[in-house]
């Protein structure tokens, strides 16, 4: 098998309703779409530093996550490259090592991907619970489409899987 050069990363905590939207979206995308061997689809959960091997040295990384845009719940936008606020933030706890810290650590170690894109959605609820809210669940299709569009833009083939028998 070819070494992966592209990562599609679903992020978030599926125990906190809409916080898990990234993970749910990416898993659903994986079910529906066929991608080449060099594309690795990962359920990144809330893994922190353990995400490093899937980001460091990759050519392109596409992430899906709940993002605070200060907008209405369900608002979708993408953050790309320089627009991603990479910084080492002050933390209260080690468990607090979030995506921004991981990205800045990758940057510091000199293996930053050539392109990074975050497809983000404003969550409605971050309460404890396995189910996403209706509003955010309904936006899943748009998020999946955004992933396919982005891969298209990156000239990475992706096609709907043939229906299961």
């Amino acid at each position: 098998m070819q070494e992966p050069t592209i990562t599609i990363l679903g992020l978030g905590n599926i125990l906190m309703t809409d916080e898990g939207v990234g993970v749910h979206t990416v898993n659903e995308f994986d079910k529906r779409y066929e991608v080449p061997d060099y594309v690795e689809i990962i359920d990144g959960g809330a893994a922190g530093l353990d995400l490093l091997p899937f980001i460091e040295g990759r050519e392109k990384v596409l992430m899906v996550d709940a993002v605070n845009f200060d907008q209405e719940p369900g608002y979708i936008d993408t953050l790309e490259n320089e627009a991603i606020p990479v910084k080492l933030a002050t933390k209260a706890s080690m468990h607090h090592l979030g995506l921004m810290d991981v990205l800045s650590i990758v940057k510091l170690s000199g293996n930053y991907p050539k392109e990074i894109c975050i497809i983000g959605i404003q969550p409605k609820s971050l309460e404890l619970g396995l189910d996403m809210t209706r509003e955010i669940w309904d936006k899943k299709e748009s998020l999946i489409e955004r992933i396919a569009e982005k891969l298209n833009e990156w000239k990475i083939p992706c096609a709907l899987r043939s229906p299961q028998k």
């Binding site: 125990l15 953050l79 706890s93 468990h95 979030g98």
Partner: peptide
């Protein structure tokens, strides 16, 4: 705070 790691835009 091991539960939520949300990106602030």
């Amino acid at each position: 705070a091991c539960a939520i790691h949300m990106v602030d835009a």
